[in-house]
């Protein structure tokens, strides 16, 4: 069953430092999940002008492409960046950054090393960084 979204507000929860509700008015809807999204949480695909995705769907897309590209050459990754070049947007700092480091590693070109820093490690670490519990003494 399709997920229902609350109309009239942006339903995206991705944040720079931690996930939180976004109460801005919607700018459009995500082409993939149909979620109402504000301008800040809308990302236009570089090679498909007019197609907007929400931040969560872009992140999922990036991860899928990374998985598909594990063990491939740098050129393959560069082609992904043609599609999803969001490195300068704050929503894509953090966990995804670790994924890039892994990709860029000289040791990542051949086999998958079970002792290496994996994407799952990055995700779990990103979760803690995203939330930031017990780190910010001005929170409430």
């Amino acid at each position: 069953m399709a997920k229902s979204w609350e109309p009239g507000i942006c339903n995206e929860r991705s944040g720079f430092l931690f996930s939180h509700e976004c109460n801005l008015p919607p700018y459009g809807t995500c082409s993939r999940c149909q979620k109402p999204i504000c301008a800040d949480h809308s990302h236009e695909l570089v090679n498909r002008p007019g197609v907007m995705l929400c931040t969560s769907c872009v992140k999922k897309e990036q991860k899928q492409h990374q998985r598909g590209g594990t063990g491939k050459s740098r050129h393959r990754r560069d082609r992904h960046d043609d599609y999803y070049d969001y490195g300068e947007e704050p929503y894509f700092y953090g966990g995804y950054y670790y994924g890039r480091e892994y990709y860029d590693s000289e040791y990542g070109g051949g086999r998958h090393d079970p002792n290496d820093f994996t994407e799952a490690d990055a995700e779990s670490l990103a979760g803690e960084i995203d939330e930031g519990f017990e780190a910010d003494m001005s929170e409430s």
């Binding site: 009239g8 507000i9 944040g15 931690f18 939180h20 509700e21 976004c22 109460n23 801005l24 008015p25 939330e131 930031g132 519990f133 910010d136 929170e139 409430s140």
Partner: peptide, 25 residues
């Protein structure tokens, strides 16, 4: 009420529909 994002407090949840405004407009 305009619910502001907080790390621990869920303001949006506290506000009832009749109280909550999505934005300043």
């Amino acid at each position: 009420g305009l619910s502001w994002p907080r790390l621990y407090d869920r303001q949006r949840r506290r506000l009832q529909d009749s109280e909550r405004a999505a934005d300043f407009e």
